[in-house]
């Protein structure tokens, strides 16, 4: 039960984590994240890294779509921009990874601003189409600017190095990917306690009212695009370090849809939603594979027989969530928390 959490100051009221219990849980989570690579095998560490990269990118899209209300289907292409910048810098200049990641993020952010310009005029589905157009253009550039992007065969890059150690394995890269993601997620959570973040929410809720309140729409919409693409760029850079091969086919349009689906399933306009959605969309197909694997002792050739079924189940799960939990996994989580706030007095 939640007791003794009277908020006596505005500062307390605005705190990101407002109860001691919550802070303890958070500390526990960080300990678990730090201990994870010591207990898990290569497969789970790999998935952990993949989930973290997807969380970073989904959080970026959540800033744009969930908090500012601008639908974008260009997230994968922005990740591509970041990935190509990181790969190019790593191959040609050999600059340290944090410089490359920052450059990848900033480069993607600049492209994001360009793509965001139409957003003052067009909204909703129209904007989604405009961002698809932008991603088609970006893909064309990836495939045809051969001297920089390596054309269709792409770029193969060396691993990141830290103090002379090559980060070439998921268990080493984990220490790069996860902290960067944690920083980005914390940054995004804090954003919505600032003027800029609140302006985003105001624009989402009613852009005309926001303008009346003195929020310059174009500037803030472009901020949102820039920030979202920055997140995508950094995530793309992490992706590049993770797979070390970047090709035009690495960031297809379906990947953008994947991220949009992740924030819808997780809960739009909620940082936790982005995290849960990205984890759900990445892990459920793998979990279903595990279940198929468990059935193999009884069902010969279960992998071949059940793989199509697995795809259908995954689709059905997404539809199920949209129907029964339209506000996303984050809402289910909140409900669970509320239950424990009153427990055991009301169950």
């Amino acid at each position: 039960m939640r007791i003794g959490t009277a908020k006596e100051t505005y500062r307390h009221d605005e705190a990101l984590f407002d109860t001691p219990v919550q802070r303890w849980w958070l500390a526990g989570l960080f300990v678990a994240i730090a201990a994870f690579p010591f207990v898990a095998d290569a497969y789970w560490i790999y998935l952990g890294c993949l989930v973290a990269i997807n969380i970073a990118s989904a959080t970026g899209l959540n800033i744009l779509t969930g908090f500012t209300g601008l639908v974008s289907l260009g997230q994968a292409a922005f990740m591509g921009v970041g990935a190509y910048i990181v790969a190019w810098l790593e191959i040609n200049l050999g600059t340290p990874f944090f410089v490359n990641l920052l450059a990848g993020g900033l480069g993607a952010g600049l492209i994001g601003i360009l793509v965001g310009i139409p957003s003052l005029r067009v909204k909703g589905l129209y904007l989604a189409i405009a961002t698809i157009a932008a991603s088609v253009i970006l893909h064309f550039v990836f495939a045809n600017w051969t001297s920089v992007t390596g054309g269709q065969s792409g770029l193969t890059m060396p691993p990141a190095t830290f103090l002379g150690t090559a980060l070439d394995q998921p268990d080493k890269l984990y220490w790069l990917i996860v902290p960067v993601t944690v920083l980005m997620v914390l940054g995004a959570s804090n954003l919505f306690r600032t003027r800029i973040g609140r302006a985003f929410i105001a624009i989402r809720d009613r852009d005309i009212s926001a303008e009346v309140l003195g929020i310059p729409l174009l500037r803030y919409k472009l901020y949102s695009f820039a920030l979202s693409s920055f997140y995508a760029g950094v995530a793309g850079g992490l992706w590049a370090y993770f797979f070390r091969v970047v090709t035009p086919e690495s960031f297809p349009l379906v990947m953008s849809i994947f991220f949009l689906a992740a924030i819808i399933v997780g809960g739009m306009g909620s940082i936790l939603g982005g995290i849960l959605g990205a984890a759900f969309m990445t892990m459920v197909p793998e979990a279903l594979k595990l279940i198929v694997g468990w059935l193999s002792p009884w069902l010969p050739d279960a992998v071949a027989l059940l793989s199509p079924v697995r795809t259908i189940v995954f689709g059905a799960l997404i539809v199920g969530f949209l129907i029964f939990e339209p506000r996303g996994l984050a809402e289910a989580w909140r409900r669970l928390r509320r239950f424990f706030h009153l427990w055991p007095f009301k169950t």
């Binding site: 790999y46 993949l50 197909p285 992998v303 793989s307």
Partner: peptide, 14 residues
């Protein structure tokens, strides 16, 4: 020991 990948590189590496 087969594993389905849906022809996606990340799933293949997984």
């Amino acid at each position: 020991v087969p594993e389905d990948t849906a022809y996606k590189v990340d799933a293949s590496v997984a």
